[in-house]
Design a protein around this nucleic acid. Structure first.
Length: 510
RNA sequence: GGCGGUGUAGCUCAGCUGGUUAGAGCACACGGCUCAUAUCCGUGUUGUCCGGGGUUCGAGUCCCUGCACCGCCA
């Protein structure tokens, strides 16, 4: 009965340190993974690191260490960050692991054996000092874009993948599956790109050593993207069908940044076609974050360091902000004022305050004990219906990875919850003993709606949800059954809540 | 240069197959409540819906054109 769900982030290149962009993709994957688990799916959530390639080799040399030593160091930083952000990944793959190298070799050998990989010559502009090939369009005045020194046209022996062979098949698949590549604007770009014609792809290098050797020809190292993309199946144990690979492939969603869409929407599917494997169900390219209106870059020194944000605002606030502020798929701007604003108005005023006022009242009026609700008035029923509708809406939005819409739908009910209290005015009823049952019913509806809200929010803000639910004496982990109205039992002891998100005074920022 | 997209209140954006007085959130102003983290609720202001032309009984919504910005490709 249990369905499976497989979601991935890209594997992050160890030549870079974690920044807000990495955190964004990973958090999105975490939210969907947590939600699918709550819905009863068996979830496989994969993230990891890409550790091969010339840049890593050179950076390691420069630092006087081996590439693997460099990778070990950076991997720890990623893993520490994910822990800090409460990222619930199932597996963390490193491309230097044996399981991965074996899988990649197998994939390469198989495609080679069937004739879709052939040995040829790769010709492009080469910068000798940098030991790097550039395409003509990358050159600046025929000079190396990295070091500005002259380049020369050079030939290198290389293995090629017959990508051209799969052009029509890929196009047909994209057109037959409207949700395969998302968002739609990106899908159009890929269709246009494929229609212009796919050329065979160079998938090996002889100019450096730090990578997986081509089976049967150790002078060649497998091209970094062929190596990296395969992580999505090697982590499942490919080519062994008996375990996770048979169980979880094809993947339900590859979440990626828009800069690597072509690799995931063109290269990867054609590799899979050649290998006779099913294609991913969905590839979703999200947007970029600018920072205070400016493009993030090392030279501007405005790269947002997630650790600093978490220390300052807390993991859940960061998680909420990133997924609420911008529709998944569009670019967004990160700013401290926007973040503080979201914390104060959405989290402190709307969400937190609702929990506070309701838990305070039930303690004041009923010593914190949940009463058996009487008949629901029209007002109560409308509120309940809105809460129930939210559960369906959130489910639909999350199916489309529309995180921000899902949160909006939740916040509509939070707003309705504040309004509900206002309109039913419990403090007035409390003065009239004859209204005792009515008062208990209102408390019930308010808290029950919130209990369901925190079940949904558990995917987005796990710590906050756990804490809020504990005030409602709900200590079990959130489940799908918990999304149904009526879960709050008569006699439950409600604790008066401490503020979940204290307001942040504007202007106290550094 | 080719293909695609965008241009709607101060800000960020919704507005599907054209149909009465163009919406939401935030911000701002005023009013109300007091259970609550000076929180919550209500009301209200601002829009040549980028410019121009056209189709139509009727267009933010379709067509043409101009401008601006963005993306992909070259």
């Amino acid at each position: 009965m249990s369905r499976t769900f497989y979601v991935t982030t890209p594997i992050y290149y160890v030549n870079d340190v974690p920044h807000i962009g990495h955190a964004y993709t990973t958090l999105a994957a975490d939210v969907i993974a947590r939600y699918k688990r709550l819905k009863g799916n068996e979830v496989f959530f994969l993230t990891g690191t890409d550790e091969h390639g010339q840049k890593v080799e050179k950076a390691a040399n420069a630092a006087g260490e081996t590439p693997l030593e460099l990778a070990d160091r950076v991997v720890k930083r990623f893993q520490a960050l994910w822990e800090k952000l409460d990222v619930s990944y199932t597996d963390f793959i490193r491309t230097t692991q044996e399981r991965h190298k074996n899988g990649v070799s197998h994939l390469f050998a198989q495609v080679l054996a069937q004739g879709d990989i052939y040995l040829g010559e790769y010709e492009d502009w080469y910068c000798t000092p940098c030991e790097t090939f550039w395409t003509e369009t990358q050159l600046i005045d025929y000079k190396c874009p990295d070091c500005n020194r002259p380049t020369e046209k050079l030939k290198e022996e290389s293995y090629f993948f017959r990508m051209s062979k799969y052009q029509e098949q890929l196009l047909a698949h994209i057109e037959a599956n409207p949700d395969f590549i998302q968002p739609k604007s990106k899908r159009n770009e890929i269709i246009a790109f494929v229609k212009e014609g796919l050329r065979d792809l160079s998938i090996s290098r002889t100019s450096f050593k730090w990578g997986i050797p081509v089976p049967g020809n150790e002078r060649h190292v497998i091209y970094v993207w062929f190596d990296a993309l395969a992580n999505y199946i090697t982590a499942l144990g490919y080519p062994d069908q008996s375990g996770n690979f048979g169980k979880f492939w094809p993947v339900d969603a590859h979440l990626i940044g828009k800069d690597i869409l072509r690799f995931h929407a063109v290269y990867w599917p054609t590799f899979l076609m050649a290998a006779g494997l099913p294609l991913p169900r969905k590839v979703f390219a999200h947007g970029w974050w600018t920072v205070e209106g400016q493009k993030m870059s090392k030279s501007l020194q405005n790269v947002v360091e997630p650790n600093m944000l978490i220390d300052k605002y807390g993991a859940d606030a960061v998680r909420y902000f990133l997924l609420r502020e911008v529709p998944f798929g569009l670019d967004g701007d990160f700013s401290h004022t926007a973040l503080v604003h979201r914390i104060n108005s959405d989290l402190a005023n709307d969400l937190g305050n609702l929990l506070n006022r309701s838990t305070a009242m039930i303690n004041k009026y009923f010593d914190g004990i949940v009463q058996t609700p009487g008949p629901l008035s029209a007002l109560d029923q409308a509120y309940r219906a809105k809460t129930e509708a939210m559960v369906t809406q959130v489910d639909a939005h999350l199916d489309e990875l529309a995180f921000s819409k899902a949160l909006q739908a939740i916040w509509e009910v939070i707003s309705a919850g504040n309004k509900y209290i206002d309109e039913s005015a419990p403090w007035a009823l409390a003065k009239d003993p004859a209204q005792h049952e009515r008062l208990g019913t209102i408390m019930y509806c308010s808290l029950e709606s919130q209990r369901i809200i925190y079940h949904l929010l558990a995917a987005f803000m796990p710590k906050t949800a756990t804490k809020a639910l504990s005030y409602l004496s709900w200590d079990a982990p959130p489940t799908e059954a918990g999304l149904k109205w009526g879960g709050l039992a008569t006699g439950t002891k409600i604790t008066k809540a401490e503020p979940l998100f204290p307001r942040i005074e504007e202007g106290t920022r550094d």
